[in-house]
Nucleic acid binder design. Structure first.
Lengths: 235, 235
DNA sequence: CGTAAAATTGATCTGTCTCAACGTGGGTGG
DNA sequence: CCACCCACGTTGAGACAGATCAATTTTACG
């Protein structure tokens, strides 16, 4: 739950009461193996799911064959705060790396929403998600292959840093090239070649699921990344 | 304000009190000429803006040259319910056709949110917006040019019908081919050719800003459109 | 009517996809 | 501890969707 607190605090300070309310949630923690689904369309909506460690993604399938990843979920992110209202998942959540997930009963969430500061922070998190989706549309719609990937990397770096998972210019990112392609709307082959180009330009270094960004300014410039939409305190 | 009521009712019934609360909002109405901006990044956030007639779009500019449209706004849609929390627009809203817009003071919105049914309906509208953004990402990321356009048309048709602006299979859609391209991530020339293809196949008919869909089932099938993400009562 | 915006057309170029093969490294069972 | 295996990454060649450039026609509108 500390990751959640950390995230919400990046949107504005919380009182000790607020933190206590979060820490006192009774919730089951479970472990999800890498590449397994955490939630599938039509799962029991009586629990809300929070990622506490690992990396997950939100995705849609079309025609059983093509897949589009529409979001990455980091520790502290909710999978389905909206199921609350909508009662139906129109997509699934899959674990990229091994994840720990807590299943929180709806009632506990309702309790949290009683605290004005918390409900505001949660609403803010939802709005940032929305702004991120708009940014992704722009990314896929307007940028070239290498720029798209670079932009995604800048975003993930900023978010990882915000939850304390980046040290220096590097962080763990065990994303497959196929998954990258499903994220930015490119074929695996072309992702591979674009990554090579980024590496040759010295913009990124990748070794075994770990991404190193030697010069973040340069990566931001070439991809047109502006972090304002994430509404993070620093950076 | 009747369009707003109509829209919110498509998410669940409202009481007479709810409707009264909406009708009694004191708000300035203003007219915006076609192709003019309604809100620009960094505008005064003390008012929230509601479209009451006409068609508008939400867009982002990158490098001053490229533009991505990330949403269409129909009568009954709010432009910026989120500015409330985030205090900063990270994009602009432009009128496609001539529009009427009401500027609602923040305080009136806060009053509305007091009514549980209304606040739930407004939250639901936000979540539908989010689901729509995910669908757009999938559309641009995974589909071919003609499918993208067809999918967009299916969505707009469903939404227009929900606010009573479609009769039979046709509705007013004064969108330029350039704007279409900025929406689905294609060049103007290619949009033109894709439209010709759709017309030749008898899937659509366009004359002077009016779109006619002779066989909606066929258009939905070819574009993979499933309306569930819009969470509309009918259709 | 005249003019500017929008739509259309043709020709050419290129980014990205597809197919198909091959390399590689880390995990697993014998 | 080795050998195999399988998922993942890499490479090459050819095809094609879509971009770009540059006119030209049509439409909307004052």
């Amino acid at each position: 739950m500390e990751t959640l607190i950390r995230k919400l605090e990046s949107f504005g300070s919380l009182t000790d009461d607020d933190k206590l309310a979060i820490r006192s949630i009774e919730a089951q923690e479970r472990i999800v193996v890498a590449r397994k689904d955490i939630i599938v369309e039509g799962d029991d909506p009586s629990y809300v799911h929070l990622i506490t460690s690992g990396l997950a993604c939100r995705y849609k399938l079309i025609e059983d064959a093509k897949r589009q990843i529409v979001a990455y979920l980091l520790p502290g992110d909710f999978c389905d705060l909206h199921v609350f209202i909508l009662n139906a998942m129109d997509h699934s959540i899959g674990a990229i790396s091994g994840c720990t997930v807590v299943d929180i009963p709806r009632s506990s969430i309702l309790d949290l929403l009683e605290q004005p500061r918390l409900s505001r922070a949660l609403l803010m998190a939802t709005l940032v998600d929305e702004a991120t989706l708009r940014e992704w549309i722009t990314n896929i719609g307007q940028r070239r292959a290498d720029e798209r990937i670079a932009h995604l990397y800048c975003e993930l770096y900023a978010r990882m840093k915000a939850v304390g998972l980046a040290n220096g210019g590097s962080f763990e990112l065990p994303i497959t090239q196929t998954e990258l392609g499903d994220t930015v709307g490119l074929s695996t082959v072309h992702v591979n070649r674009s990554l090579q180009s980024l590496r040759e330009q010295g913009l990124i270094e990748l070794h075994r699921g770990s991404l190193q960004i030697p010069d973040i300014i340069r990566l931001k410039t070439m991809s047109g990344f502006k972090s304002n939409y994430l509404h993070l305190a620093d950076n």
